[in-house]
Design a protein around this nucleic acid. Sequence first.
DNA 1: TTGTTGTACTAAAACGTTTTCGTAAATATT
DNA 2: AATATTTACGAAAACGTTTTAGTACAACAA
Lengths: 335, 335
Amino acid sequence: MNLKQLAKELNLSISTVSKALRDSYEISHATKQLVLAKAKELNYQANPFASNLRKQKSKTIALVVPEIANNFFSQAINGIEAIAQDKGYHVLIYLTHEDAQKEKAIVNILQNGRVDGIIMSLSHQTKDISHLQMLHNQHIPLVFFDRAADNIKVPKITTNDFQSSYDATQLLLQKGCKSIAFLSFSDHISIIQQRMQGFLSAMQTTNNSDYTNWIVPCGIDNSVNYTIIEQLLQQPHRPDGIVASVERLAITAYEVCNQIQIQIPDQVKIIGYTNLQTAFLLQPSLSAITQPAYEMGCEAASILFRLIEQKGVAFIAQETILKSVIIERSSTSTV
Amino acid sequence: MNLKQLAKELNLSISTVSKALRDSYEISHATKQLVLAKAKELNYQANPFASNLRKQKSKTIALVVPEIANNFFSQAINGIEAIAQDKGYHVLIYLTHEDAQKEKAIVNILQNGRVDGIIMSLSHQTKDISHLQMLHNQHIPLVFFDRAADNIKVPKITTNDFQSSYDATQLLLQKGCKSIAFLSFSDHISIIQQRMQGFLSAMQTTNNSDYTNWIVPCGIDNSVNYTIIEQLLQQPHRPDGIVASVERLAITAYEVCNQIQIQIPDQVKIIGYTNLQTAFLLQPSLSAITQPAYEMGCEAASILFRLIEQKGVAFIAQETILKSVIIERSSTSTV
DNA sequence: TTGTTGTACTAAAACGTTTTCGTAAATATT
DNA sequence: AATATTTACGAAAACGTTTTAGTACAACAA
């Protein structure tokens, strides 16, 4: 069922029907009623491709994220989808699987007008951002959330990573930790760097040689991370506190402690960035730095839609910083 | 940059360029080279809407799921996306938020050719399936995974729900449970019914009045579920075993036990359907019936693509049943 | 009367592809 | 040499919309 058929049924021209359907002032009330009724009767829906082609708009956005089987991202996507559905937009989802090559390939495909805008969180590998620059040059609206690229002037939704990491580290210090390890995840993604800086900054407040810190670089391979953390905790002078920069590392740290029989929080206290909904049910319950993932998604989508609909160029290059909350549980308690 | 401009640059006709790009036999090797080189140089990419309109194909599928902030669904989506990316398909994602009305609205929108096929898991509310029947009538390829509609002849990917539930219940019985509660989630979704039947069937093997069973209907509201389970466990003759039909209910059961100080597994043993990656870190570690979510996603996508590409109508109405695995942990151990 | 304005409609162009059909030149077949 | 076939390309239609540019007709003003 297309416009032509519908028009024939109504004994009207294609243009009249088209205009009636979009409530044009050129069409009389009476014919509008007729057209609407017939369209409903015959279950007419405009072909989106013809529409998109003609209007040069797709009412579709792309969502490019590292992974989805991850509490932070799935909650954020939930927020993005909620806003998109409300606004009548469609959402294409692409996973980079933390692979910079894949990210580049995906972004290249998105340059041909398939989408009106893009929401992204970078792969942890991504260093070269030429593919993103190209998007920007083509004036395709782009918004980052969480993992943003530094050197590109587009809106970014992040959390107070420096501060939350600083506070979490202070919490460990206050609970008596003397040597704390920071489990890092990537050394060039901005938010992880900030978390690291917050950690280091807190450590520096203890201007005292009694206090030591480790920066422990981890990656996406869980078994490699396991070994790294195992070795860390099997040293003679092992840390008595751990700040995990991402959820997965907090979980792996728990696993290691479980396996090699190190008591949390007696022998090592752990706090980590996590959106785990079962953090309070873990053994022991996990102290968490929790990002407002859903809200970040909503915010990212809202800004993207404003950008697409051009309501003020003032939004360009604006940084929105939401606050993470720190929830103290048993994994950082004193004995 | 479009075909017309590219053709002008090359002093060739639009049709020649188009054919060269799709490697048609009508075009000489030499010109193909020329065209390809120029296309690359000018970063030409075909407009997808023009292409889709002309070809009446979109290389896009829709994924309609109840929620995403959920370990089962996010893992399944991961599998679906992996296959789709591999096949060069795009994935539109729609969340119903367990709302049958929203599901209907979404499905209606998908009837206009926007997608070549649909992968779905039903909202737990969905009873009326007329919207799905309409899709089917319009010959839009459709595949269900996990939560499928009974009365519609399309491929379905599910797990051995009856058997896994039966086995889980047998495990509880074997561990000494006498009265077991089944926390249900929806009374008309097929897979939940099967899980319930598996439970009841296992209970019937104990042909003995010493054994009792509860079917406890729960919903999507966590706080309501909390109250229901709390009341269940505060009865004088409370159950000494629980089978949770979905992850959320297992977690809520843990919460309740935590709160009202009922010891797992001493006072009540718990086993549940879950894809929680931290099940083994819970206090106590949670015995799980784990569905092969990623594999289910891959399978659903593979079948949908075969359907789309018409490689054999033999796939229509085929049911694929993968096996869940039961992992016994502390929550079902004997004291 | 003539000219102006407004209303309600239609014809046709445009969006950017893909594909069918036609054709000139080159090559092969008789 | 005459005919048939192949090769390599171009013109034009088609996909289904939206929108611009008309155009009758009626209502109104001068």
